[in-house]
Design a protein around this nucleic acid. Structure first.
Length: 921
RNA sequence: GGGAGCAUAGCUCAGUUGGUUUAGAGCAUCUGCCUUACAAGCAGAGGGUCCGCGGUUCGAACCCGUGUGCUCCCA
């Protein structure tokens, strides 16, 4: 079979994904194996997968594939989220472009458009998940608005309401004037701004001071007929909502104002001066205007002092009739006009810059208004306690823990009630039913509501129109917090087989930005409804940034298109690129260069395949070592004794191949163990690096070169078989990270029935440290000799004669063949004395002499050796100093002292070698 | 304002209970190679005041204090 020059991902990827799904490898049904369950953090249906998702899905796929290959019944549930606010905004926008006004549609008509939208974008997302190679169970796709899901959300709402954990009430909430809905505290993002502090004069009047017709509604600084109190405010446009001025009771400046009143500029409302320690006398003028309808702190003050609440804003952010002036104008426009008027009329006496933070809606970006509004809330305190304990007690482990544990704890310990109603249509409609007077009952259906109403209010309703359902829907997170349960129908059918088998799930992989929105609340819901954690481990990935460290955003245009990347580099390379630069929990700086590295790695694997395939038909069975037996690793000496082989010289020739095989097998075991530890610590990037290096450096650069037969030469069958086997093992290790190419090469290496995708990992054998050390020494010697060739300008094609002077010459005799091949030596001699007129190299205790025709630059050789000598002597010095320190010898552990002694001996031996080498020059 | 985290090679990061041959990797850089798997490659090299200062210790990249700089969360 002819293999292409380079690996071409596009063809193989589609073919293998189809094969895997046809074979049903990703399908999971409960069985006797232990489950490994992962639920996808549902991407919302508003868009396409961005690089953050790509990282996230890749991490999950690696964990799931690894589990599937390690004896677990792996189940990865895909799905998507209806994303109430975001989707509704997009649908409204889409309708607008079609010339349709949402307000002219009925709820049902609007939802029809929304579901069309969902089908379109849901499919785009699923297509991308597939292209990326994600091994999700496609028969378990769940959407948060699916019928069973919808019903379970309603069921939970009713249940929590009946338990008194959900209530309805008028509270200060965050209002999004663009989306015209309430938001939860978590949906508000604060941004630093440079605002202004405006100093305003309010005219003071006595308590009986009814405003007379003649009272001016302007003051001039020259006009001294009035007394004033000066307040400082950031929001002069809210003065029409002022219902008091508050000062600190201990503030001497204002003590005389007890019982006095002030007049709100422009609208002439008379408001009391109140006293409360809440006010900081140092801030501004020490006098605070109180606007209960538009500030949470003012609202609390208002409750305490029984102040009137005047809401001067409409839901869309324009001024309401209650504002009396600039009615219907946008809050920001009105603000400018009010400032101008205040200035003109002399009320504004000063303004200064002021650093502040302004709340923005996470979804619409609009500046959020604090607003009194009647909404539905979840009482969080009671739900929070078990969720806190689950993490604090270590039942749920967070990775990386040190970073997020404190954040998690703080939030739960200071949790506030959760506003869950949204003034939208896209979502689960709140199951509350009202009569004309506003009395309500909570029930699943209209019929049930009628019954409930009768019970609660003792009234028989005769006419169907008498109860109306709440028009609002629930916060999307109020549905997502049930995700790990309801994807297995754990809420709608709590005792079913699936939920009992798959729950709790194994690991949740998600972004750290939704720790409160989602993670904490899922734990609450899980603890409440199943009395069991929803997952054992939480793995937080970092944020994907561009290579300059900037957040990826549409406006910067620095967010690449996933499908284009896959087209250009292949899915494996994308997965490789994003994982190799993704240290656990840290932000990753995305650079296409790492995808290129992934593509190059594909190619390296491909070429290794080509090399091995070249040997396929060239195996030789004409050798004493042809029989591969279980004891093939026994030393030849042992075999001699047992009579298995009769003559050592006979096997000498293949000896070096055995060393290569021996070494690589142990190296494989060593890395397998390392990778296993990294998996358990979620250090996936590190694991990939280890596998990458094992394949590229150890397998391709060293092992394959060591066993490579000469031009037109045959390869021993045992060596060939072992090589193919090693290759397979490497592909298996790589498979969770790069599933497509590993499967492809696995099948090209050898005709076979099975698939790598579900091949089970072997038991990890311990690595023999002595063999590993021998391999390292060989590599070290080869590198040193190649370096010497380089430095002495020996062309790669020029052959050399190598003389080895070692007290332990047999070591080098055994690896002579490899050594000669690797440094292009035509002949290797073993000597007992220095060889004159040669390039000398000292490695550990051994000396090497390169005999060649070039003029030898003794001077630079000498310098090189002197430099090394100095280094060794300095090192020896520090060791001797340490050992000479009585307190070190007395206090340090015995093995540490022993180690230092060994260091000393080794350094002394190296120094001796170098000195002898120098003497021979 | 409160809290958390980080600072190691040009860049991105490892570095285990403080002792692992006077600090490692990948990428980038430099040198030499079109060597019959691979130039998307091969061989080799250079590169560090472990942020500054002080302390604990026989011994500190690691522990403590402090300063500086960056990032994030919360009000």
């Amino acid at each position: 079979m002819e293999l292409s020059k380079n690996y071409i991902p596009s063809v193989t990827e589609a073919r293998w994904y189809k094969h895997w799904t046809e074979k049903g490898y990703f399908k999971s049904r409960p069985d006797e194996r232990p489950p490994y369950t992962v639920v996808i953090p549902p991407p919302n249906v508003t868009g396409v997968l961005h690089m953050g998702h790509t990282l996230n899905e890749t991490v999950q796929d690696i964990l799931v594939r690894k589990a599937r290959m390690s004896g677990f019944n792996a189940c990865w549930v895909p799905g998507s989220d209806h994303a109430s606010i975001a989707t509704e905004a997009k649908v409204v926008q889409m309708l607008k472009e079609k010339g349709i006004d949402k307000n002219e549609l009925s709820r049902e008509e609007f939802l029809k458009y929304a579901f069309e939208w969902k089908d379109k974008y849901g499919d785009i997302i699923y297509n991308q998940i597939e292209k990326l190679g994600c091994s999700v169970d496609w028969e378990r796709v769940t959407f948060t608005m699916d019928d069973h899901y919808y019903k379970s959300v309603i069921k939970v709402f009713i249940d929590l309401y009946n338990k008194g954990l959900i209530y309805r009430g008028a509270r200060m909430i965050n209002w999004d004037p663009a989306a015209k809905t309430a938001l939860s505290d978590e949906e508000v993002e604060f941004k630093d701004i440079i605002g202004k502090l405006y100093y305003l004069n309010y005219i003071l009047v006595d308590d009986e001071g009814q405003l007379k017709e003649s009272t001016p509604n302007s003051v001039n600084s020259q006009n001294a007929a009035f007394n004033f109190i000066t307040i400082a405010t950031q929001r002069p446009e809210t003065i029409m909502g002022d219902t008091a001025i508050c000062v600190n009771p201990n503030d001497e400046r204002y003590k005389h104002l007890k019982g006095k009143f002030a007049i709100v500029p422009l609208i002439n409302r008379r408001i009391p001066i109140i006293f409360d320690e809440y006010v900081d006398p140092v801030f501004g003028t020490g006098a605070l205007k109180v606007t209960p309808a538009h500030d949470i702190n003012d609202y609390n003050l208002g409750l305490k002092h029984h102040l009137e609440v005047v809401d001067t804003l409409n839901p869309d952010g324009t001024l309401s009739a209650a504002a009396q002036i600039y009615i219907g104008e946008d809050r920001f426009v009105a603000r400018k006009k009010i400032i101008a008027e205040l200035q003109e009329k002399g009320f504004l006496i000063n303004e200064e810059e002021y650093a502040s933070r302004l709340g923005h809606s996470q979804r619409s970006g609009a500046v959020v208004e604090p607003r009194i509004s009647t909404q539905w809330f979840v009482k969080m305190k009671e739900l929070a306690r078990p969720a806190l304990n689950a993490v604090v007690d270590g039942e749920i482990r967070i990775h990386p823990g040190d970073k997020f544990l404190a954040t998690y704890k703080y939030w739960l310990e200071n949790v506030k009630d959760w506003c869950i109603s949204r003034q939208l249509w896209w979502g689960q409609q709140i199951p509350a039913w009202y009569d004309e007077k506003g009395n309500y009952v909570v029930a699943e259906t209209y019929e049930a509501a009628i019954e409930k109403y009768k019970e609660k209010f003792g009234q028989q309703l005769t006419d169907n129109d008498q109860l109306k359902q709440d028009a609002d829907v629930l916060d999307t997170w109020f549905s997502s917090w049930l995700w790990p349960m309801e994807v297995f129908k754990g809420i709608s059918d709590p005792e079913n087989h699936d939920i009992n088998y798959y729950y709790p799930t194994s690991v949740l992989v998600t972004g750290q930005d939704i720790i409160f929105f989602w993670v904490a609340r899922m734990i609450m819901a899980g603890m409440h409804y199943r009395n069991e954690k929803p997952f054992s481990d939480v793995y937080f990935t970092g944020m994907v940034r561009d290579k300059l460290g900037r957040k990826m955003s549409k406006s910067l245009g620095n967010s690449p298109d996933l499908l284009q990347l896959i087209d250009k580099y292949g899915a494996d390379a994308v997965r490789f690129g994003i994982m190799i630069s993704s240290p656990a929990g840290n932000d990753l700086l995305f650079d296409e260069a790492s995808l290129e590295q992934g593509r190059n790695f594909n190619n390296k694997l491909w070429n290794a395949l080509k090399l091995v395939k070249m040997w396929e038909g060239r195996t030789s069975t004409d050798n004493t070592t042809q029989e591969v037996d279980d004891n093939w690793r026994l030393t030849d000496e042992t075999k001699l004794q047992t009579g298995e082989i009769e003559d050592l010289a006979e096997v000498e020739k293949s000896r070096s191949h055995h060393i290569a095989i021996d070494w690589f097998e142990n190296r494989l075991n060593e890395v397998r163990a390392e990778v296993e530890v990294m998996y358990s610590q979620f250090k996936l990037s590190e694991a990939l690096k280890s596998i990458y290096s094992l394949i590229w450096d150890d397998f391709c650069s060293w092992y394959l070169e060591w066993v490579k037969p000469g031009f037109e030469q045959r390869i021993e069958e045992e060596v060939y078989d072992k090589t193919v086997w090693f290759f397979e093992e490497l592909l298996q290790m790589l498979h969770p990270f790069m599933p497509f190419i590993s499967e492809e090469i696995y099948h090209l290496l050898r005709e076979r029935e099975d698939d790598l995708c579900v091949k089970q990992f072997p038991k990890i054998e311990a690595a023999d440290q002595n063999i590993l050390a021998a391999g390292e020494l060989l590599k070290q010697v080869i590198s040193a000799l190649r370096d010497a060739r380089n430095k002495n300008q020996l062309k790669p094609k020029e052959t050399i004669k190598l003389h080895v002077q070692s007290a332990n010459g047999s070591i080098y005799k055994n690896i002579e063949e490899i050594l000669a091949k690797q440094i292009n030596a035509e002949k290797i001699y073993h000597v007992n004395d220095a060889v004159p007129n040669a390039i000398v190299i000292a490695v550990e205790k051994d000396k090497f002499y390169i005999e060649c025709e070039n003029q030898i630059d003794t001077e630079s050789l000498k310098n090189e050796l002197l430099k090394d000598l100095q280094h060794q002597k300095n090192f020896l010095q520090t060791v001797i100093k340490k050992l000479g320190n009585e307190r070190f010898v007395a206090n340090a552990k015995a093995e540490i002292v022993e180690l230092e002694k060994k260091k000393q001996a080794d350094a002394e031996a190296r120094i001796k070698t170098i000195e002898e080498t120098l003497a021979s020059l």
